[in-house]
């Protein structure tokens, strides 16, 4: 029974956090959108197209952040065999995949008017596309094997190998020539963009973070329920087999 003790505790904690995370998601989204669309100035070079930044940059940050959550969960699952950690990776993957896809698509929609092209095969865009495929590969491995333990282990190993891509994404704009602009917020010497643009950017980033907490906790609870169902199904199968043996 101690195997269920942990998920029960997790569910209790999730139920405390969830109402706050939902409230924050709504509040931060409304405030973030207000600043992003109404209360921030157009860029002196990019004009109104700069507003794409407020959905592009948070999605890109979250794509990387969720990947690190998934990788940390995979590491914990492989080293300590923690059953909840395995489910945490599985719960996080589709959220990270959506964020990464949105970073790519909104980036294309910003690139077309500013660079004159939707896509270039440079270090930044290519490494983010690789991250999207890593998410897809991780989810596909979960589906590919009947045995959940084996599937989870294979997916976790892929997630850990893919961590090498994270610094490549981060430093790609410094290492290789690119159309993509270099870091302007996450820099050692502080942000180089105007405060009036930092407000909507941080509000939207915080909204995306709160959104992640909500969907992640829901999906964790979902995965715990699915695990419970498969354990009960196995137990009832064994039960029927014993009954048949006794009867036979």
């Amino acid at each position: 029974m101690h195997r269920f003790a942990n998920p029960a505790q997790f569910n209790r904690l999730a139920d405390v956090v969830l109402p706050w995370a939902i409230g924050l998601t709504v509040l931060l989204s409304v405030a973030g959108l207000y600043y992003a669309l109404f209360s921030s100035p157009p860029d002196y070079q990019q004009g109104e197209s700069v507003r794409v930044m407020y959905v592009h940059v948070p999605a890109a940050w979250m794509g990387m952040f969720v990947y690190m959550v998934m990788a940390a969960a995979s590491f914990t699952a492989l080293v300590w065999r923690h059953p909840l950690a395995l489910l945490a990776g599985k719960a996080a993957a589709p959220i990270g995949a959506i964020f990464t896809a949105l970073a790519l698509i909104t980036g294309m929609l910003w690139g077309k008017p500013m660079w004159g092209t939707y896509w270039v095969w440079d270090g930044r865009l290519t490494s983010v596309l690789v991250q999207f495929f890593l998410y897809l590969g991780y989810m596909a491995l979960w589906q590919a094997m009947e045995d959940e333990e084996k599937a989870g282990r294979a997916a976790s190993i892929l997630a850990l190998v893919g961590v090498v891509n994270i610094p490549i994404i981060k430093f790609s704009v410094d290492w290789w020539s690119t159309l993509h602009q270099p870091a302007s917020v996450m820099r050692l010497d502080g942000p180089t963009i105007d405060g009036a643009m930092l407000v909507p950017l941080f509000l939207m980033a915080a909204a995306y973070q709160a959104y992640f907490v909500v969907v992640f906790l829901w999906r964790m609870k979902l995965e715990i329920n699915n695990r419970k169902l498969s354990v009960m199904r196995q137990a009832s199968l064994q039960n029927t087999e014993t009954q048949m043996e006794v009867a036979g």
Binding site: E48, S49, L102
Partner: peptide, 29 residues
Amino acid sequence: GGYAAFVWTAYGLSASALVWLLVSSRRKL
């Protein structure tokens, strides 16, 4: 400022994808 097609598509796709994931996760739960 003439960028309507790009700006609104970016916001529209972001909102629809995120709301879809939220709703489908909740339904599955």
